[in-house]
């Protein structure tokens, strides 16, 4: 983080919906090949942080820099090219429910990269194997799979084109602890295998420590703490302490 240009950086990013400021001059960055985890309470703007970086939401102020170049306000066409270097696992997996599992995984290959369906299917099945799903789920539909399996399919879809940057939005929320641990393991395996930079969101601390090199805590639209994953347990930052220990009383007032 010292001299090298970060892979991805948020610089003074402000995003508001109506009168409500969700991100307030947010500064954050992640170095190439590192895995950053963003923690924070529900509704604190973690998903918005990722969506701003992806250009799915446009910030009112500030810059998002990829390899040192600002990518806010790119044209749709430029954005599409940029997305070929990015993989995303959405909060609810966001699989296309009218397509089969392999068509989901191969969606980018077929629809954007012009890969033939036969070849795309082979690559989809390879990606499914990477996330420990057997080839016989390939022709089923997302609604026929469990939540954990859907997350795996979402992960396979995110890694199929070997992206430089991976985003994971609450990959384990809603899963039982054992399935969650398996997903965490798969995520860190895949990130390591591809050598990608990763940005993940979670409010599951086990998850944060398995997949993160560094952790940043988002509160009131700003990063209020950031440090190596190992320091999460020992820091005396009162916000982090309250979050980690799961106490209702503390500096974080809960309006929810």
């Amino acid at each position: 983080m010292t001299s090298a240009v970060p892979k991805l950086a948020w610089k003074g990013v402000t995003k508001q919906f109506g009168d409500r400021k969700v991100l307030d001059q947010l500064d954050l960055s992640v170095a190439p090949g590192r895995s950053l985890v963003i923690i924070g309470g529900s509704g604190q703007g973690k998903s918005v942080t990722i969506k701003a970086a992806l250009g799915l939401l446009r910030p009112e102020a500030g810059a998002i820099e990829l390899d040192g170049k600002n990518i806010v306000g790119l044209s749709e066409g430029q954005r599409r090219k940029l997305f070929s270097r990015v993989g995303v696992l959405f909060q609810g997996a966001a699989l296309f429910d009218s397509l089969t599992i392999w068509e989901n995984v191969a969606f980018r290959l077929i629809n954007a990269d012009g890969v033939s369906r036969r070849k795309a299917r082979e690559r989809a099945i390879e990606a499914l194997e990477q996330v420990r799903l057997s080839a016989d789920v390939a022709d089923r539909f997302p609604s026929e799979l469990s939540g954990g399996m859907q997350k795996r399919v979402g992960l396979a879809r995110a890694v199929v084109a070997q992206p430089e940057i991976l985003f994971f939005d609450e990959p384990t929320t809603g899963l039982d602890p054992i399935t969650a641990a398996a997903i965490n393991q798969l995520i860190s395996d895949q990130v390591r295998r591809l050598g990608s930079t990763a940005v993940s969101i979670t409010h599951d601390l086990a998850s944060a420590q398995t997949i993160g090199d560094e952790i940043a805590m988002l509160h009131d639209g700003r990063i209020i703490w950031r440090g190596p994953a190992s320091e999460l347990a020992t820091t005396d930052n009162p916000y982090v302490r309250q979050f980690v220990e799961g106490r209702a009383e503390g500096p974080i007032s809960h309006t929810a």
Binding site: K51, L54, L56, E76, R79, R80, K81, F83, S84, V86, G87, V88, F90, Q91, G92, A94, L95, F96, D97, F107, R108, N111, A112, D113, R157
Partner: peptide
């Protein structure tokens, strides 16, 4: 599709 982020997902898969 909008509510379940499938439209966002489609865009990140380089498809308009």
């Amino acid at each position: 599709m909008r509510a379940t982020e499938q439209i966002d997902a489609m865009r990140t898969l380089s498809t308009d």
